[in-house]
Amino acid sequence: MNISEIMIPTIHSISSDKSVSHAARLMSQYQMDSLVVIDHGELVGLVTSRDVLTAHPNRIVADAMCNQMHYLLADQNIWEAHHYFLNENVKLAIVLDEEQVSGMITKETVEMKIAEYKDPLSGLYRAPYIQFIGESYLRKQIPFHLLFIDLNDFGRINKQYGHPFGDDVIRTYSAVLSSIAEDQGDHLCRYAGDEFVLISTAPIALIEQYIDLISRPTNVLDITVSAAVGHVNGCEDPDFFKRSWRELIAQASLESSAIKAQKTASALPS
């Protein structure tokens, strides 16, 4: 989803020589928390409700406004906006479309939309989030490790203990994975059903520890749970950046499936 789909398309403006009290009246009239400041057709700043509250009403807008503007592009997606607001620690940005002001977007609006992409059961982001991270890293040519994590015998757990218990397993196992993926360069999502995906820029030694911990049988709610982990190492694959996200996630998924098949075959009587 692009910013243009959730931005505030109507922008109300004021000139910098108007009073702060006039800015407050306009905000109340338009039911807006901010006004762009335009002088002689040029965008020179932004005045917010917080600026108005902290400035004397007889002062002019030029004294209260912020002249450090933040911009996003209309065709950027909400994940890019989310990361921008987090990194810049700002609450509002002007939206440009072909170098023209087309609206504004708030951090609150973006966070509300991002929340729709969170899985309510696990509390983790869903597949669109990890796809954004992966495609962003590929575009910037940042090498990363891609782990596709598939729980073993989850269908049996549902059949033996019931789906509500299976939900409890997913919820608890998600917390276990989150505790493992604590590094700043780690991104985790619930991909689908009993499948999870982890993107990490950690050193290979730490990745190997991750895989060992995740693959090892773990006691979850008094039953033993393990997972098959497919691993694509972008730090060692010379063709890594020639491949699409779809190709990489397919490889990791197939590797995970092969490990599960091998485990099943080894458990069969000879």
Rank of each mutant, 00 (worst) to 15 (best):
I3V: 02
E5P: 05
E5V: 02
H12K: 05
I14C: 02
S19I: 01
V20Q: 01
V20R: 02
H22Q: 07
A23L: 04
A24L: 00
L26Q: 13
M27R: 11
Q29P: 00
Q31K: 14
M32A: 03
D33I: 00
S34N: 15
L35G: 14
L35S: 12
I38E: 11
H40D: 14
H40C: 14
L46P: 04
L46V: 03
L46G: 07
V47I: 12
T48N: 10
S49D: 13
P57F: 12
N58C: 03
R59D: 11
V61W: 05
V61M: 06
A64H: 05
C66R: 07
H70G: 13
Y71E: 08
L73C: 00
Q76W: 00
N77E: 10
W79S: 05
W79Q: 02
A81M: 01
L86F: 14
L86T: 05
E88A: 09
V90D: 15
K91G: 14
L92Q: 12
V95A: 08
E99R: 15
V101H: 11
V101L: 12
G103W: 07
I105L: 12
K107G: 07
T109P: 13
T109M: 08
E111V: 13
M112A: 01
I114F: 12
A115N: 04
E116P: 00
E116S: 03
Y117N: 12
K118T: 09
P120Y: 07
G123K: 04
L124T: 15
L124V: 10
Y125Q: 08
R126P: 12
Q131Y: 09
I133Q: 11
Q141K: 10
L147P: 06
I149N: 07
N152Y: 05
N152M: 08
F154V: 09
I157N: 10
Q160H: 12
P164M: 05
D167M: 12
D168T: 05
I170V: 09
T172F: 09
S178G: 05
I180H: 08
A181Q: 00
D183T: 12
G185V: 00
R190I: 09
A192L: 02
G193S: 09
L198K: 05
I199T: 01
T201E: 11
A202M: 08
P203I: 01
A205G: 03
Q209H: 06
Q209G: 11
I211K: 12
D212H: 04
I214M: 09
S215N: 10
S215H: 05
R216Q: 05
P217D: 07
T218C: 13
V220A: 06
L221S: 10
D222R: 08
S226C: 11
A228D: 06
A228W: 09
V229G: 08
F241L: 04
S244T: 13
W245T: 00
R246N: 15
R246M: 14
R246G: 08
E247S: 15
L248C: 14
L248H: 06
Q251M: 08
S253C: 07
L254Q: 06
S256C: 03
Q262S: 13
K263R: 10
K263E: 10
L268N: 01
